[in-house]
């Protein structure tokens, strides 16, 4: 019972935050609201007993993303979003309403939350729950699955993060290269 009350409260706050993000034009306020949205999502995950996911959401979604967006906004001159005033665009509204209705209709067939008979719980989950402690000795099943049973996937994830770092470095990192003596001399000669 108490879970339902907490869920409804959190979902209401999420909806209010989402509407506020759409309505507000100050980019700084929007970034702060994004952080609040992430924290609320993290709390939702805690209520659903997915503590590891909540942890990541709070650290990455609310922490690092907010800082990165703030770092970006510090570089922009205009901190206000250009607001388009005027008529309601009916086509996007219709598309969004239709998609939303279809998604809600889709949830009607989904098994109830935590249903032990759900197909997702019947596949490999029983094996992990029964065997992960005797096989790996790690009490946290999430860690056992991530690092041992699904070690290949996690290796791939680490490579994705590594690639992201390389991409950022290639695109906007390393300003020193421009100021190396060789380049500068070349530029001056050209000029």
């Amino acid at each position: 019972m108490i879970d339902i009350v907490i869920d409804i409260t959190l979902l209401t706050f999420l909806a209010i935050t989402a509407v506020a993000i759409v309505r507000i034009t100050n980019l700084f306020a929007i970034i702060m609201l994004f952080g609040i949205f992430s924290f609320l999502s993290a709390t939702m995950f805690v209520v659903m007993d997915a503590v590891d996911v909540a942890f990541t959401e709070a650290a990455v979604g609310a922490g690092i993303s907010t800082v990165l967006m703030l770092a970006t906004i510090a570089l922009t001159k205009d901190q206000n979003e250009k607001q388009s005033v005027g008529r309601i665009s009916w086509l996007p509204l219709a598309v969004v309403t239709l998609t939303g209705t279809a998604l809600v209709y889709g949830t009607l067939d989904i098994p109830a939350f935590g249903d032990p008979e759900a197909p997702a719980q019947k596949h490999v989950a029983p094996y992990y729950i029964e065997r992960s402690v005797p096989e790996t000795g790690v009490p946290n099943i999430v860690t056992a699955v991530l690092a041992s049973y699904r070690g290949f996937d996690t290796l791939g994830e680490v490579f994705v993060i590594f690639t992201a770092g390389i991409a950022v470095l290639l695109l906007i990192g390393d300003k020193r290269r421009k100021s190396t003596p060789g380049r500068n001399e070349g530029g001056e000669n050209d000029a």
């Binding site: 690092i64 800082v67 770092a71 993060i161 590594f162 770092g165 950022v168 470095l169 906007i172 300003k175």
Partner: peptide
């Protein structure tokens, strides 16, 4: 890896 990449990305953004 995650620690280093996070800092690389942050320094790249903030350094601009």
């Amino acid at each position: 890896a995650v620690f280093a990449v996070m800092l690389i990305i942050f320094f790249a953004f903030a350094g601009r």
